[in-house]
Computed example of a mutant assay.
Amino acid sequence: MNDHRRVYGTDRGEDPRPQPGRTYTELCGGPLDGQLLDTTGWTDDALAEGAALLTEAGAYGPGGRALYGPAPGDPGCWDWTGDIP
Rank of each mutant, 00 (worst) to 15 (best):
R6P: 00
A48G: 13
P70S: 10
L53W: 00
T40D: 03
D45C: 02
D15E: 01
D74C: 06
R5L: 02
T25M: 13
W78S: 03
M1C: 09
M1T: 11
I84W: 00
R22A: 09
G41E: 02
G69D: 09
P20Y: 04
G34T: 12
P16E: 00
D15R: 06
L53T: 02
P18V: 11
N2C: 01
Y8C: 06
Y24D: 14
Y68D: 03
G76C: 04
A66S: 12
T81K: 08
P72R: 08
D74K: 09
D11I: 11
Y8H: 13
W42H: 14
G41Y: 06
G21F: 05
D38Y: 13
L53Q: 01
D3C: 10
R5D: 00
L47C: 06
T55V: 04
H4W: 08
G82P: 08
T23P: 01
L67N: 11
E14K: 11
G58Y: 10
G58S: 09
L47D: 13
A46S: 12
C28N: 12
D74Q: 14
R17E: 12
L54K: 13
G58L: 08
D15C: 05
A66D: 00
E56C: 04
Y68K: 01
Q35D: 10
M1Y: 12
G73W: 04
W78I: 05
L32M: 05
G76W: 02
P31E: 07
G9Q: 05
G29E: 14
T43Q: 10
R12P: 00
P20G: 09
T40K: 03
T43D: 12
E56K: 02
